[in-house]
Amino acid sequence: MAKYMLLIYGDAAQWEAMTPGERAAHDAAHRAFAEAAGSRIVGGGELETAPSATTVRGGADGDLITTDGPFLDTKEAVGGFYLIEAGDLDEVLALTALLPEVAAAHSAVEVRPMVFHG
């Protein structure tokens, strides 16, 4: 079985502007995804918005340099993730299609296989 990271991207302003009904439908869709994926979900979670990020780099003198905010300044940011274990990419794509971010105009889901180091 291979592992795949599902990175959920979107416009945080759009997520924050959801009505309570839209939020409930969104959450229900994630519960349906989790039920369909079952034990194939190895991990996952919703992230705080991008401005709460801290970016860490190594300085020329070996010190750590921290910067408030995300590494990239973009409208769309990672809002959450799932780590899925599945037989192949087709299985993962079929599950990914259940996520509400796939159908929303302001978001998308990036699927990446994880490297296996033997």
Rank of each mutant, 00 (worst) to 15 (best):
F116K: 15
A17I: 04
S107R: 08
E110K: 13
A37W: 02
I41G: 09
L93V: 14
T67Y: 07
W15S: 09
E22C: 07
R40I: 02
G62Y: 01
A60V: 07
I41K: 13
Q14A: 15
H26S: 03
T96L: 01
L95G: 07
V56T: 08
H30N: 09
G80T: 02
V92H: 08
I41P: 06
A60M: 03
V92L: 06
H30C: 03
H30D: 04
A28I: 11
G10E: 05
T55W: 09
T19S: 15
T67P: 02
L47I: 05
H106I: 00
A13D: 13
D90P: 00
W15H: 13
E91Y: 05
E76R: 13
D90K: 13
G59H: 09
T74D: 09
E48Y: 12
P51S: 11
A37K: 02
E110M: 08
G62N: 03
A37H: 03
E85F: 08
G44S: 05
R40P: 03
G10R: 02
A94I: 00
S39P: 00
E91K: 07
L95P: 12
A25W: 09
E22N: 01
A28P: 00
L83N: 08
S52Q: 11
P70M: 04
P100I: 05
T55V: 00
E91I: 01
L6S: 12
V42K: 11
A37D: 02
L99W: 10
P51N: 10
V56D: 10
E35R: 12
E46K: 13
A29M: 10
L99P: 11
R40A: 12
E35S: 12
E110N: 06
D27G: 12
L93Y: 05
L98T: 04
V111N: 10
T96G: 00
F33V: 00
A108E: 11
E85P: 12
T74L: 03
D11Q: 13
L47W: 03
A86V: 08
Y82D: 13
L6K: 06
R112G: 03
E76V: 07
T96E: 12
G10L: 01
S107V: 05
K3W: 04
T54P: 00
L7T: 10
P70H: 09
R23C: 07
L47G: 02
G80V: 07
A60T: 04
L72K: 15
G10S: 02
D63F: 04
G79C: 02
D11T: 09
F81Q: 06
A34W: 01
G38P: 03
F116V: 14
A25V: 01
A50Q: 09
T49S: 15
A36C: 02
W15D: 13
P51W: 12
L6Q: 10
P20K: 03
E48L: 15
W15A: 15
A104S: 13
P100C: 08
K75W: 01
A108M: 15
A50M: 06
I8S: 08
G80K: 05
T66N: 11
H106C: 06
G59N: 09
A36I: 02
L64F: 10
A2N: 15
A34R: 14
L83I: 13
A60P: 07
P20C: 05
L98F: 05
A108T: 14
R112F: 06
H30P: 03
M18Y: 14
F71V: 14
H26N: 11
S52K: 10
R57D: 00
Q14C: 14
L99F: 13
V78H: 09
G45W: 01
A86R: 11
D88L: 03
